[in-house]
């Protein structure tokens, strides 16, 4: 994109610390880029949109995780990040009296959860007390680079909405780069293909339109058969 040049770490972006946004750092009153990314400059702020990188949890994120360990007081969940998540039994509404954690969720079960809290030592606590959250026992998980997740969601969820209306599939995008899709197998195939296209062509112009076109064409092929 011509309007968003690539910046490398250490590139000087501004000399007014007030405009510093995400992906930047300040030293001696100057604003520098923190990592490789696309420069997004507005009148009031500069920020760097990452092109790559691991998922770093932040409070309120919806994530998709895989249970790695079952303990007496909760579950250790792999959230595709340098940090493991912990889901205490008290945060799982499926837990009732006389049920053991083992019977509710076992190793390798997949869950949709929300990040409840992160302490300064990066101990991540998850919760399932939310409308979106549940254990998933069917459907498909697609893994992508977490930095590309905002493109899969689209502007105000436009991309997800398009998938839902065009194909009638269920889809939940985890901020950690895992996407759960469920529905007609052939339609899920189309979504999977489209998601990989989004991942590889993120940050190009008119992406939503091109993906919509792609999905419509594939759907047409499906109905034509």
């Amino acid at each position: 994109m011509a309007s968003r040049p690539i910046v490398l770490p250490g590139e000087l972006l501004a000399s007014n610390p007030k405009v510093a946004g995400s992906g930047t750092y300040i030293e001696n009153g100057k604003v520098y880029a923190k990592f490789l990314g696309l420069l997004d400059r507005t009148d009031t702020s500069v920020r760097v949109i990452p092109l790559k990188g691991r998922y770093i949890p932040s409070v309120g994120d919806v994530v998709i995780g895989i249970v790695r360990e079952v303990a007496g007081n909760g579950w250790v969940v792999d959230i595709n990040s340098p940090y493991q998540g912990f889901l205490p039994v008290s945060e799982n509404p499926e837990m009732r009296q006389n049920r053991k954690p083992n019977d509710v969720l076992d190793i390798d079960d997949v869950i949709i959860a929300k990040v409840l809290n992160i302490d300064p030592k990066m101990k991540v606590t998850l919760t399932m007390k939310d409308r979106m959250c549940r254990a998933v026992r069917f459907g498909r998980i697609i893994g992508i680079n977490p930095a590309r997740v905002p493109r899969v969601i689209g502007k105000k969820g436009s991309m997800i909405r398009m998938f839902k209306t065009e194909l009638g599939v269920q889809i939940v995008v985890g901020k950690n780069g895992l996407i759960w899709v469920s529905g007609d197998r052939r339609k899920v195939n189309i979504v999977e293909e489209a998601v990989y296209i989004i991942e590889s062509e993120a940050h190009t112009d008119g992406l939503t339109d091109r993906i919509t076109e792609f999905v419509k064409r594939k759907k047409g092929e499906l109905n034509g058969q």
Binding site: L8, K34, F35, K52, A147
Partner: peptide, 11 residues
């Protein structure tokens, strides 16, 4: 390191 997207002060 830059390719990995690791935050750095420079190169």
């Amino acid at each position: 390191l830059v390719d990995a997207g690791v935050p750095m002060k420079g190169m």
